[in-house]
Computed example of a mutant assay.
Amino acid sequence: MKARSPTRAVASRALLPLLLAAGFLLLLIVLASLLYGAGPVSAAQAFSALTGDGTSDATFVVTELRLPRTLIAMTTGLALGLAGALLQSMTRNPLAEPGLLGVSAGSGFAVALAILLGATTTTLTTLVAQAGALAGCALVIATTRVQGLGNDPVRLILAGATMTGLLLALTSMMMLMDQRAADEIRFWITGSVAGKPLAILKATLPSIVLALTLIVLVARPLAAMALGEKAALGLGHHPGRIRFLITITVALLVGSATALAGPLIFVGLVVPFIARAFSGPDIRKTLWLCVPVGPAVVLGADVISRLVAAPAEMPLGVVTALIGAPVLLTIVRSGRMPSL
């Protein structure tokens, strides 16, 4: 059996404490999500329900309302965090993010169109969202291949913002065409995990499991591509094939997240930024850290959305935007992008 190199062993040991710390933080946020929320059930009553001594009303709120919401928010954060890390590594651009490059907007536009046409089943919504994300991701890849554009982070983001604005405008036009669908689309595009049934999570699980499997396959070649395409070819990898697999993976992840919570922006920027700050440039370690950090960010934002305007709730998409905008400014002003 091949001996494990000392460098790799040290790197694994360094990663484990980070994963444990992030996992512990996630557990605390999960507990807060189950204990706190809008409604007459207090934290003490919710805790009693978790221990099996609560009233029937408190048990219903915790198990039927807050628990599904918690699971959906965690899955959304996992999907968007991993998708953002993959996009940033593939484009070699720290600003690449599904919400900024039109991937989420493409997914959202497709779902809004499906709602306008009368789609109601969760499975159909998930498939349509993934198709829209695939189209948006394909546009991102095409954009990065344009000479002089893909290598400039600011111009790439401007191109993505233009595409996002166009798709949002078309979505707004659809809302004017059908008042029946307008209310549902309006609630959906603001981003929310409130009131979502577990059925919609079950419908997205096969896609997420497939995406996680693909990530396992592309993680090592993607790390090699960070050394350059010639180096990756010399190591026996095929960059074109890897980009294709990443495109499919991102479409599966973003489509699933959009079907679950709507088109949330900045999550795919914030999560890899936090993970990379602790893990360094190795995409494999970044992806591992995104697993607990992504759910923690979205679930934490959801808890804030419940409490900041209680007894009402602030849209989740607004909270993620308020969190992500300062991170975007930090990255732009950090001076780590030579093209700026």
Rank of each mutant, 00 (worst) to 15 (best):
L95G: 14
L26G: 04
A135T: 13
E97L: 11
R69D: 02
T258W: 02
L287P: 03
T143N: 13
V297M: 09
G262Q: 02
A46F: 02
I141N: 13
P272F: 08
D178W: 15
V111D: 01
A49H: 00
L299N: 10
K230M: 05
S89T: 04
L156D: 13
I200D: 02
E97V: 15
P326V: 12
I115L: 06
A309D: 13
M175G: 14
A296T: 15
F60L: 10
L50Q: 03
E313Q: 10
A43K: 03
Q88P: 07
R180H: 09
L149E: 07
S5D: 07
A296M: 14
T122V: 01
L210Y: 05
V327S: 08
P292E: 04
K196M: 01
S56H: 06
V297E: 12
A219R: 01
A232P: 11
L158M: 07
V41E: 04
A142C: 08
V267W: 02
C137N: 15
R220E: 09
G150L: 05
P295E: 05
P98K: 12
V209F: 05
L198P: 00
T120V: 10
L253A: 08
R333C: 11
V140T: 13
P311G: 14
F278I: 08
L198T: 01
I141H: 13
A181P: 09
H237C: 13
R145A: 10
W288C: 15
A161F: 02
R276F: 04
R8G: 02
P206E: 13
V154I: 11
P315G: 08
M90P: 12
T249G: 10
I189L: 05
Y36I: 06
L117W: 08
L269A: 09
A275Q: 03
V103G: 11
I274Y: 09
M74R: 01
G160V: 03
G52Q: 01
G268E: 03
G317E: 03
G228K: 06
S48D: 06
G52L: 00
